[in-house]
């Protein structure tokens, strides 16, 4: 009997919970600002393309599949044409979305974790810790990020993981400043002080009281960082600093540089993909920022 009642309870529990979450997202979805709608739709589309890349174009995007220099629409087999060597541009764009998403998300994750940690510690403890960490942050702010990134990639080698690391490690200073500013305001609040007085320890106060409250502006900045990371990856690839095992939008542009005047579509098509992706992340950042300023909860 007990097992039966448990079995009865479980499904009802879940069936109540799941639609609730869906309903909540759906309800707040209608309240989202327009920019967030468009941004999220672009992101969803890009995610779908990236996930379906192997289904849509099972062959290697580096494979020479047709005549070189075929303009878009010339051959129905290659709707976006072929590049200098006869590679399918559509396959390149679809597979390239994986690299651009991966670099964007992974580099942002690194920058956000490093920046938030430094900002939290710096703002919470103050004093010489703050002083030292802020000078370090300043260092990463005054060296031009792109110069720093190309130097790191040139020292470590142009692997995908090194590119991600180089972009992530050079772009955290903005997050650190933001997290520090939030923490400076939060640490003076009663619930943070009381948590320490009650013997919770500093780590507990930081992780359970300061971090969650400092997170919203950090998340907004993360979407801007993702947009910047996609742009930086494209810039690195344009300089020839891309992983030769993975096709990326930037490397497609870099590879078509010699055909710029005769076949500008080879540059414009992956370029348009970059523009749309970056616009998507910026719109998400704009929209989240609007919600944050409005002060209403999702």
């Amino acid at each position: 009997m007990t097992t039966d009642s448990e079995r009865d309870e479980l499904p009802t529990d879940i069936s109540i919970r799941v639609p609730n979450i869906v309903l909540r997202i759906f309800r707040s979805w209608r309240k989202f600002p327009l920019s967030l709608h468009i941004g999220l739709l672009i992101l969803l589309f890009q995610l779908a393309v990236a996930l379906l890349a192997n289904t849509l174009y099972p062959q290697d995007p580096f494979e020479l599949v047709g005549m070189p220099f075929m303009a878009p629409g010339e051959d129905p087999l290659f709707p976006l044409g072929t590049d200098i060597l006869g590679r399918d541009i559509a396959a390149g764009v679809v597979h390239g979305s994986r690299v651009s998403l991966l670099v964007g998300f992974a580099a942002t994750l690194i920058a956000t974790i490093v920046g938030t940690t430094i900002g939290l510690v710096s703002g919470y403890f103050g004093g010489w810790v703050d002083h030292a960490l802020m000078r370090l942050t300043e260092l990463f702010q005054v060296i031009p990020h792109f110069l720093f990134a190309i130097i790191l990639v040139s020292i470590m080698g142009a692997d995908l993981s090194n590119i991600i690391l180089a972009i992530g490690l050079t772009s955290w200073s903005m997050v650190a400043r933001l997290a520090r500013a939030e923490t400076l305001a939060l640490r003076e609040l009663d619930f943070v002080k009381i948590s320490v007085v009650m013997g919770g320890g500093h780590l507990r106060a930081i992780l359970t009281h300061v971090l969650p409250n400092a997170l919203p502006p950090v998340i907004v900045s993360a979407s801007i960082l993702t947009a910047l990371a996609v742009l930086t990856e494209a810039g690195l690839a344009f300089f020839g600093m891309s992983d030769s095992n993975h096709v990326s939008w930037g490397s497609m542009i870099g590879a078509s540089r010699d055909a710029l005047l005769t076949a500008p579509y080879m540059t414009l098509i992956p370029g348009a993909a970059i523009v749309v992706a970056v616009m998507g992340f910026s719109l998400i950042g704009d929209g989240l920022g609007q919600i944050l300023r409005r002060g209403h909860r999702i």
Binding site: L231, G235, I253, V275, M279
Partner: peptide
Amino acid sequence: ALLIYATPGFL
């Protein structure tokens, strides 16, 4: 502004 912002400088 958004369109220009999203365009890579080299492009």
